[in-house]
Design a protein around this nucleic acid. Structure first.
Length: 224
DNA sequence: CTGGGGATGGGGCCC
DNA sequence: TGGGCCCCATCCCCA
């Protein structure tokens, strides 16, 4: 079986803290999924006890890297074509380059996450995503007024508004204004007749996911 | 206990 | 490739 040349332009090897998994060299231990739908911010407990979920299964599903299947079809004489097939989704390409391009666009994200954070166990498919994540550890954006540090400039900007009192996001239904767009969006829900989040058991609706969660945790649903 | 505002975090997308 | 922005989500606090 031919070996696919490394498509990565940026060799992970150059990024020393990064570990790289290969198809035959899976991660040594369960790694925390970054998804924690209910509790949100992953706690240390979650990090170590959360079982791998669908994502994990997807990893297994795509455990084998795309391989080249060269099929020689002979449909009656001179019509001989070579096909390069993606082992993951079985799409076929007439050229190797086509297969490579397909892999990058479609399959790579599931093949392996090659870039691991040196501060935690998160993994990313690209160096850019990893660098972005690392900022959440290094917190390079510091507020000159109070010294609080943030991972990204726009987070700092939002924070500075808490000092200045600037509220550029106004509600079109009332006179309220907000410093943050997300908070305006949450506020707009209070004007809406339709509440987006509904309790599965008692059908009560809530304007926010967090309120639904609080409702569920308060035990309403247990009683019913 | 509920509803809502304030503040913040992080991934993804676009330029 | 990096910055800016969007969107979603969450926690904290208070009425």
């Amino acid at each position: 079986m031919p070996v696919i040349p490394q498509p990565e332009v940026l060799s992970p090897v150059m990024y020393s803290p990064i570990t790289m998994w290969t198809a035959s060299d899976s991660p040594p231990s369960p790694l925390p999924t970054d998804l924690s739908p209910v509790s949100g911010y992953p706690s240390p407990k979650d990090s170590h006890e959360m079982p791998r979920s669908d994502e994990d299964e997807h990893e297994h599903e795509h455990e084998q890297p795309a391989s080249i299947t060269i099929t020689t079809t002979s449909t009656g004489g001179s019509d001989v074509t070579e096909k390069f097939r993606c082992a993951l989704c079985h799409k076929s390409y007439s050229t190797y380059a086509g297969l490579l391009k397909h892999k990058q666009l479609h399959c790579d994200a599931h093949v392996r996450k090659a870039f691991s954070c040196k501060y935690c166990e998160k993994e990313y498919v690209s160096l850019g995503a990893l660098k972005m994540h690392i900022r959440t550890h290094t917190l390079p954006c510091v507020c000159k007024l109070c010294g609080k540090a943030f991972s990204r400039p726009w987070l700092l900007q939002g924070h500075i508004r808490t000092h200045t009192g600037e509220k550029p996001f106004s509600c079109s239904h009332c006179s309220r204004a907000f410093a943050d767009r997300s908070n305006l969006r949450a506020h707009l829900q209070t004007h809406s007749d339709v509440k987006k989040y509904q309790c599965k058991n008692c059908s009560k609706t809530f304007s926010r996911m967090s309120l639904l969660h609080k409702h569920e945790e308060s035990g309403c649903c247990v009683a019913h």
